[in-house]
């Protein structure tokens, strides 16, 4: 994970750059937040969307400080078919830069995120952002 006070600008990103691993517990606070938006969750299986929310949290926490006004443009997801996360599990997310491109005056960055639970892949995906600075 990055550990400095310098804002992460487009110029500082490079394909392959690794921002390390962020752990996100699927705890009661996060579950309450999820339920406040999407409704009650029955049983002990964590909602798939909570794992996606964790992906976003990891992406946000891994790359700090960041400029204000970044725009989330696109996303890819792939869940491991049989993987299951339960309420209370802690998911590890690895965040890296997959690609960057300047296009039509905008700074496009693709971040790759892989989520693991107990060493097994749970989710992988990409976040495409238009970086603000």
């Amino acid at each position: 994970m990055a550990d400095n006070d310098e804002i992460w600008t487009f110029a500082r990103f490079a394909p392959g750059q690794d921002f390390g691993t962020v752990t996100v517990p699927l705890d009661g606070t996060r579950l309450d937040g999820w339920q406040a938006i999407y409704g009650p969750v029955a049983g002990d299986i964590a909602p798939d969307g909570l794992i996606v929310a964790g992906m976003m949290e990891a992406y946000i926490r891994a790359i700090q400080p960041r400029p204000k006004g970044n725009v989330h443009a696109a996303q890819k997801l792939a869940f491991a078919p049989d993987a299951v996360a339960r309420k209370g599990d802690t998911v590890s997310y690895r965040v890296a830069v997959a690609a960057k491109e300047e296009r039509k005056g905008r700074n496009w960055v693709t971040f790759a995120v892989r989520a693991e639970l107990d060493g097994a892949e749970l989710l992988s995906g990409e976040i495409v952002s238009i970086w603000a600075a």
Partner: peptide
């Protein structure tokens, strides 16, 4: 999920 299904893969743009 409420339909008893899961995303195997997905590719979207906002």
């Amino acid at each position: 999920s409420r339909a008893g299904m899961r995303v195997v893969d997905l590719d979207i743009r906002f």
